[in-house]
């Protein structure tokens, strides 16, 4: 959705480069297993799509002649090091196995939970949020929220299925969207443009 929007409108105002870069870090550190394990064709293709689309978005915002001019550089000022460092420490200390790939995988789970924060802060600073950008954040949050249902279903149907790190992080991630969901639905109901209160 976001890539299509940027490609079609040649405009990325309201889009946080910081969040996109965090997602690129999340995908690359989590999908290292592309190199040494195979789960399914669907799984592999989706991993490649996630890595590829976020790399493409970053390229557009950073380097595209027209798109880069529309980037809200002065507004997108979230200090991502304050997210990356704690997640890295958490990944080093709370994991299932003290190996490089496992620590990076766990780090990516923690980082993904908070990766949307720079985008939410930027949306709050943007007076009239572009409809497509609002839809992108809604779809991203909705996608993660659906995992909660998926986990409940798998817990009930698959003996021995449990993954506490993923469940807790995913629940926090979805909770972070709650406020956004509220204003998204309100603007939808009233047929108004989305704007978050400051």
């Amino acid at each position: 959705v976001l890539l299509l929007k940027i490609h079609a409108t040649k405009n990325c105002s309201g889009v946080s480069l910081k969040t996109q870069e965090l997602y690129a870090i999340v995908f690359v550190t989590r999908y290292l297993d592309l190199l040494f394990s195979f789960i399914s064709l669907y799984n592999t293709i989706m991993k490649l799509i996630f890595i590829g689309s976020s790399a493409c978005i970053i390229w557009y915002i950073r380097f595209h002649r027209v798109v880069s001019q529309t980037y809200d550089r002065e507004q997108d000022t979230f200090r991502v090091i304050f997210l990356i460092l704690p997640c890295l420490l958490l990944g080093i200390f709370i994991n299932h196995e003290f190996t490089i790939t496992e620590i990076l995988w766990t780090f990516s789970i923690y980082l993904e939970a908070v990766a949307i924060l720079p985008q939410l802060v930027l949306l709050q600073r943007t007076k009239n949020v572009d409809t497509l950008t609002g839809n992108y954040v809604f779809l991203l949050g909705g996608y993660r929220a659906l995992y909660l249902l998926n986990w409940i279903y798998r817990f009930l149907t698959e003996p021995g299925y449990r993954q506490w790190i993923v469940w807790i992080s995913g629940t926090i991630q979805t909770a972070i969207y709650c406020d956004f969901f509220y204003y998204y639905f309100q603007s939808w109901r009233r047929n108004e443009k989305l704007s978050l209160p400051s």
């Binding site: 299932h96 995988w105 449990r162």
Partner: peptide, 10 residues
Amino acid sequence: EKEEEKKDEL
């Protein structure tokens, strides 16, 4: 007992 995680989710 080691918690076995199947990393089949995205």
